[in-house]
C-alpha cells in the first residue's frame, strides 16, 4: 500500500477542528456577552480587581510566542532544521512563562479568598460573582489549551529530531502552529474582555 499524503486534506481537517474550538469558547463568550449586558456596573467593579500588569505581560508573552512559532515554520520550510527546532523550544518556553504567570495571578486571587464557591465570593454582589466565575472558567479552559498546545509543539520538536518532520513534510508542525495561533487568538479576546473594557 502506498503511503498516502494529502497536505491540503490535513489542513482542511485542522481548520475544521479549529472551528470547533472557536465554537467551544463561543458558548462561553456568549454567556459573557449576556452577563456583561445584564451587570455592566458589577463587571466594571470586579474587573478593577484583576492585575493589568500580569495581563499585559502575558499578552506580550503569547504574541511573542506566536511570532516564534511562525518563524519556526518558515525556518523549516527554508531547510534550517536546527533553527526551527530552537524556535519551537522557545515557543514552548514562553508557553511555560505564560502558565507560571497565570499561576501567580490565580494564586493571588485565591489567597484573597476569591475562587468559585468560596465564602468570600458568595458575599459579593451577584454580578461580580458571575464575573469571577467566568474569569476562572474562561482563563482556566484557555490554560488547558495552552498546556495541550505546548505538548503538541514539544511532540513536533521530537518529530523533527527523529527526522519525521522535515523541510519536505512539515504539515504536522504547520498544523501545530495553527493550533498555537488559535490559543493565542483566544487570549487576544480574553485579555480586553476581562482586563480592559470593563
Amino acid at each position: 500500500m502506498h503511503e498516502h499524503r494529502d497536505y491540503e486534506g490535513a489542513k482542511i481537517g485542522m481548520w475544521l477542528f479549529l472551528f470547533t474550538e472557536v465554537l467551544l469558547f463561543g458558548g462561553l463568550f456568549l454567556l459573557y456577552a449576556v452577563y456583561l449586558h445584564r451587570y455592566p456596573a458589577e463587571f466594571h467593579a470586579a474587573g478593577k480587581d484583576l492585575s493589568r500588569i500580569f495581563g499585559t505581560a502575558n499578552t506580550i508573552v503569547l504574541i511573542t510566542s506566536s511570532l516564534f512559532m511562525a518563524l519556526a515554520i518558515s525556518a523549516l520550510q527554508r531547510g534550517k532544521v536546527l533553527l526551527s527546532q530552537r524556535l519551537v523550544l522557545l515557543t514552548v518556553a514562553l508557553a511555560g512563562v505564560f502558565l507560571v504567570n497565570k499561576f501567580f495571578e490565580w494564586s493571588a486571587k485565591i489567597s484573597h479568598g476569591i475562587y468559585p464557591d468560596s465564602p468570600a465570593l458568595l458575599k459579593l454582589p451577584p454580578g461580580e460573582m458571575v464575573f469571577f466565575n467566568l474569569y476562572y472558567l474562561m482563563t482556566g479552559l484557555h490554560g488547558i489549551h495552552v498546556i495541550i498546545g505546548g505538548a503538541v509543539l514539544l511532540y513536533g520538536w521530537h518529530l523533527m529530531r527523529a527526522g519525521r518532520v522535515t523541510p519536505e513534510h512539515f504539515v504536522f508542525l504547520e498544523n501545530g502552529g495553527l493550533y498555537w495561533h488559535l490559543v493565542d487568538l483566544v487570549w487576544i479576546y480574553l485579555f480586553p474582555l476581562f482586563y480592559l473594557v470593563v
Binding site: 452577563y35 445584564r38 458589577e42 468559585p116 464557591d117 451577584p126 460573582m129 458571575v130 466565575n133 472558567l137
Partner: peptide, 17 residues
C-alpha cells in the same frame, strides 16, 4: 463545573440565569 466546582453560571442565587 456547576456541580463539581460550584461555579454556578446558571444559578440565580449566584447571578446566573
Amino acid at each position: 463545573a456547576e456541580r463539581v466546582l460550584g461555579v454556578g453560571l446558571f444559578d440565580p442565587s449566584r447571578g446566573g440565569d
